[in-house]
């Protein structure tokens, strides 16, 4: 019977998958347990600068062009149906609720998540993680917690900038290319958008930040031997974070905006 080995393989894959889900949750739990103690603020600030501030240029660039292209596409259609007075509001809401948090999350997963995994992964393969443990330092407290805090608090900051620059990009295209009046655009933002559109996006981005940090650290700490292992872990970290961001975004939208 070819069916039995087939089922065995599926079963093994599912068990392995559930096992890693459990390990990620354990790592999250261990990190949260470490929050009882005061984290090393020097480390936290260093990570905030490294993971947050340094990602600003690429997030700004991504969001500027996203706001521009989105406005270019929708203004054409909206003007056709006489709805040019909604363009500004639609752009701002889309930015605040979905585009800014998700795209900033994706950019951060690619840049920050990869950096976290590569750094911790190469520490793992060169025995530096063992050296930490030997020197009576918990790798979770020393490596994971500062990165978790940095990501959870810096991603929302990036998203605020992303909201603004995306809308500014939209404004530029709406006024210069689509011929929508400056007042029409800004007024429609005032009419349509509410505070919750932004705060919801910020809450989402905190969750995304936690995903990026925990997955990044987990993949780094479980890196297999050698340079190839680091490469594979880094790819795995980015892919897993991105998938989790997209999936959790749907459910977060459902909870926050239904």
């Amino acid at each position: 019977m070819a069916l039995v080995p087939f089922l065995e393989t599926i079963g093994r894959l599912i068990i392995r998958y559930l096992e890693s889900v459990g390990k990620v949750l354990l790592l999250l739990g261990a990190s949260l347990a470490q929050l009882r103690r005061r984290p090393d603020m020097g480390q936290v600030l260093r990570q905030m600068a490294h993971l947050g501030a340094d990602s600003l240029p690429i997030v700004l660039l991504t969001m500027l062009f996203t706001g521009m292209v989105m406005t270019m596409q929708i203004s054409h259609e909206f003007i056709k149906y006489g709805a040019q007075s909604s363009v500004g509001g639609v752009v701002a809401i889309a930015m605040g609720r979905e585009l800014a948090p998700v795209l900033a999350g994706i950019v951060a997963a690619g840049r920050v998540g990869a950096a976290i995994t590569a750094e911790i992964g190469s520490m793992k393969v060169t025995e530096q993680i063992d050296a930490l443990r030997v020197m009576a330092t918990d790798p979770v407290a020393y490596l994971v917690v500062p990165r978790l805090i940095a990501c959870v608090f810096m991603l929302p900051v990036l998203v605020v900038f992303a909201d603004v620059i995306g809308t500014v990009g939209g404004y530029a295209v709406a006024t210069a290319y689509a011929g929508i009046g400056s007042y029409t655009f800004t007024h429609s933002i005032k009419v349509f958008a509410v505070v919750n559109d932004v705060t919801g996006g910020l809450i989402k981005s905190m969750v995304f930040g936690a995903i990026i940090a925990i997955i990044g650290c987990y993949k780094g700490l479980t890196t297999a031997e050698g340079a190839e292992g680091v490469g594979r872990a880094t790819t795995g970290s980015v892919v897993t974070s991105m998938i989790l961001i997209f999936v959790s975004n749907y459910f977060l939208s459902y909870i926050l905006y239904r």
């Binding site: 025995e127 050296a131 030997v134």
Partner: peptide, 24 residues
């Protein structure tokens, strides 16, 4: 447990085969 072990490890040192210096 790891916490108890850390108390013991404060009286121990280890030189690793590839040194394992923190390269950052």
């Amino acid at each position: 447990a790891e916490d108890e072990l850390n108390a013991i490890r404060r009286h121990m040192g280890m030189v690793f085969q590839y040194s394992a210096l923190f390269d950052s």
